[in-house]
């Protein structure tokens, strides 16, 4: 149960928090922060799937009996990098929008609809 809360509950909470930030804020930068937080939640979840307490690095030697799966860690590295790229691109767009429209509110990007 504790495992569940630590490895799935907290990332899940983080992801939902990020989502709430994304959905409830009007400031574009805050929305991007929300997106980023959500991605972090998912990333934590990836690491958390490896729910082995007291595990070590996967080395085939004597004494390394309980070890962690390395693949999720490799995956999460990639995911973090991608997340950074996405956030950077988003912020770049926000800067351009600010230059163009003089504001970074969600109202500034509601021109096209229907």
């Amino acid at each position: 149960m504790v495992n569940g809360i630590v490895f799935y509950g907290i990332p899940g909470l983080l992801a939902i928090m990020g989502l709430v930030i994304l959905l409830q804020r009007e400031n574009l930068i805050k929305m991007l922060i929300g997106l980023s937080v959500m991605e972090t939640g998912v990333n934590l979840f990836i690491v958390g799937t490896n729910d082995v307490l007291k595990g070590t690095a996967p080395i085939i030697e004597e004494g390394f009996r309980i070890y962690c799966d390395p693949i999720p860690q490799a995956l999460v590295l990639t995911a973090i990098v991608i997340g950074v790229a996405t956030t950077a691109l988003g912020l770049a767009l926000v800067i351009r929008i600010y230059e163009k429209k003089g504001g970074i509110s969600i109202k500034d990007i509601k021109e096209m609809k229907w």
Binding site: L35, M38, T86, G90, L93, I97, I109, E111, M112
Partner: peptide
């Protein structure tokens, strides 16, 4: 093209796409 509409569309795609890929 850095006109307002392109940026707007891009950001929308970015956010929705970000949620989707997560």
């Amino acid at each position: 093209m850095r006109d307002g509409k392109g940026l707007e569309g891009g950001l929308k795609y970015l956010i929705v796409g970000g949620v989707g890929s997560s």
